[in-house]
Structure formats: C-alpha cells, structure tokens
Design a protein around this nucleic acid. Sequence first.
DNA 1: GTCTATACGGCGATAGAC
DNA 2: GTCTATCGCCGTATAGAC
Lengths: 197, 197
Amino acid sequence: MDTRERILHTGLELFTERGYEGTTLAAIAGQIGIKKPSLYAHFTNKEALFLAAVKKAVLEYNQIVSSELKASETESTESQLKTLLYRLAEVYYDEYTISQFYYRFLFFPPPELAPRMQELVVYHGSIADQHIEAVVQQGKDEGEIEPSLANDLITEAYLTLLSGIDFDIRYYDFNKKQIRTHVDRIWQVFWRGIRAS
Amino acid sequence: MDTRERILHTGLELFTERGYEGTTLAAIAGQIGIKKPSLYAHFTNKEALFLAAVKKAVLEYNQIVSSELKASETESTESQLKTLLYRLAEVYYDEYTISQFYYRFLFFPPPELAPRMQELVVYHGSIADQHIEAVVQQGKDEGEIEPSLANDLITEAYLTLLSGIDFDIRYYDFNKKQIRTHVDRIWQVFWRGIRAS
DNA sequence: GTCTATACGGCGATAGAC
DNA sequence: GTCTATCGCCGTATAGAC
C-alpha cells in the first residue's frame, strides 16, 4: 500500500471515530509514521484529504453491497431474501470502518462540505431495488409470494426492514450472533406478510 | 427563559449541526447576544455545557416519546399501532433539534465523553416495549392479531419497523407527506404479517 | 453576571533544506 | 517525498474591573 493509500486508510479510521473537526492532521500523520507537513505532498489540504476519503468509502461501500447482492444463490425465494438480510447486516461487522464512516457522514456531514459531498454519493438504493424486485418476481413465479402485493411495495417494505436492522445494530449494540437471532425473529413476521396465502 | 436555558437551547442547535468539536463557545455566546467568557458564569467548561445539553435532550426526548405513547386512543388495534408509527415518525419533524441531537450523539459521541454520556442515557426502549406489548395483547383479545405469534416477537418486529422508518427519514430525506405514504405502504405488509388469519 | 484583556496551546498551512 | 522550523489564527479558559 503506498503512502497515499495509507493516509486514506488511517483517515477513514480517525474521521469515523472522532469526526471531521475532531481529527487532526498530526494524528493521521503520526499513526502512519510520518510528520504532518508530509501530508501536503499527497493532498492539497485537509478538506481534499477528507473528500478523497469520502469518495473511497462510497465506492467501496457500494461495491461491497453489490457483491453481496450478486452472491445470492439459487435457493428458495424465502431463504434467498433472508440470507441477504444476514449478509447485508453483517457488512457492519466485516467492514466496520467503511460502513460507520459511510453512515456517519451521510447523516451528519460537516456543513461546509455537504454540497461537495453530495456529488460523490451515488445512491446504491437503486441497485438493491432492482435486485430485490427481481427476486420478489421470481418468488411470485414460483408461487411462494402473494401475487396481489405489488413488487415495489414488497421491496419498499423489505428495504425498510433492512434499514431497521442497520439501525438496531447501532442502537442496541448487537453482536453478530444477536443480530442473527434478531433477524430470524422479525423475519417470521415479515415472511408471513408477503408469502402466498 | 433564563440565560442558562438559552445557552442550552442554542447549544443543542449548534452541537446538532456542527458536532462537538465543530461548535465553538464563541458561536453559542454570539447567537444569544453575550460574550464568550460569560458562559463560564453558567457552566464550568465546554464539556459540562455539552453534558448538560445531553441530559436535557435525553429527558425531553424520552418525555416526548412517552407522551406520544400515552396519547394513543381507543381505536382498533390496527389503527392504534399504525397511528403510533405516524406519531413517532413525526417527532423527527416536530422536534427536529432534539431528535437529531439525540441520535447524532447516541451513535457518534465524542470518544472522550462517551463514558460520562452513557450514565445520562436511559433507554426509553423498555417504556415503548411495554406499551406496545399491551396493545398487541389487546389486539389478540379482540381477535385482530394472530394468537400463535408471541407478543414479544411482534413487538420486536414492530420496533424494528419503527427503527427502519426513523432511518429512512434521514437517509432519503423524506418530508412529512412522503413519510405518511411510506408508512401506509409498508404497513400493508406488516399488518398482513401479524393479523389473525 | 457580564464585560475587556489576555494567556496558552494546538490547529492548518507554508518555506525551504535535504 | 520527507523533514525541521515557523507562521498566523483561533480555540478554550482565566484574571480582574464594573
């Protein structure tokens, strides 16, 4: 990993933990074993460093989500949708820094940088949307899912469920095992809500 | 409102918008028309001011949630649970500063203050838990809700749905009308999941 | 309880040698 | 590309008059 990458990597960690104003350039430099002024050989200033970290986080996070979506196997629709919930929830643990950074600054950006950050954020929502709608349609074709419920309605509910799980992980500080149990439990209600009657 | 209260009020606003390190004492003082050193007549230092704001936010937020819970009327179980979702979601808009402050610093506290903050946070989860379980039980008694689903299972799913709505408001930047539509839509799936078959 | 004046440190950023 | 040295500014916090 070259120096620029090491700076971004450490920057992501520290910005995640301490926020934009709470993170000093000296701390970033110190953690990778160089001095503060050396950073300026790689980035024009603190803002540019931070925005480069945002770009990296957005790209990586979307890539992680995409790869989890693609990895879904050809199981039953129910198990496919449920497995996807596990996987996307577990991104929080397996890619802790990226996902914490992503949500921290998506929800609470430094006000003066918010305009320039929005250009960098490409909503992955639409990618997930399409994928889930396709699985839902497959579930209908196979007679597993209630045909009278519109695909986009089911997808919307599913994504809100996913949001809720994401929220709960942070709010209740669930560990990986607790999250599995949590997903298992609420899935019973959700599946009952969309399965063919 | 006395000066101490005005300081806390403005502090909540600025901490919410700019974070702990991003908020300066001069900015707080300036916004209420006094000078920076005057703050020290009311709080021993910045940390104490912030922790007092945290205490205020936690108390007010829990009070708001509690009063929304108590306000539920004697309608059908379905409409009662659905109305509660609207109300709790709309707290975000009606009490924007308090609820943003609450979640910002619950999820992303200044690391050095996290220990002292935890003492101040009393989870309102258990209050909501009990209330919702009672409504669920009532729904079973009246034959509206599927009796084979455990009360705590339904409550857990309901609260995750609420978390998801909270998350979506912030993530998609929904306005009040969009949130009503969103809740209406996902409620169809959730209700189908818990209603008596 | 508010003010002016000021101390003190740490911040982002630059200059210039190697 | 990294360093030492240093600048200028602004942050929290204190002293002491009114």
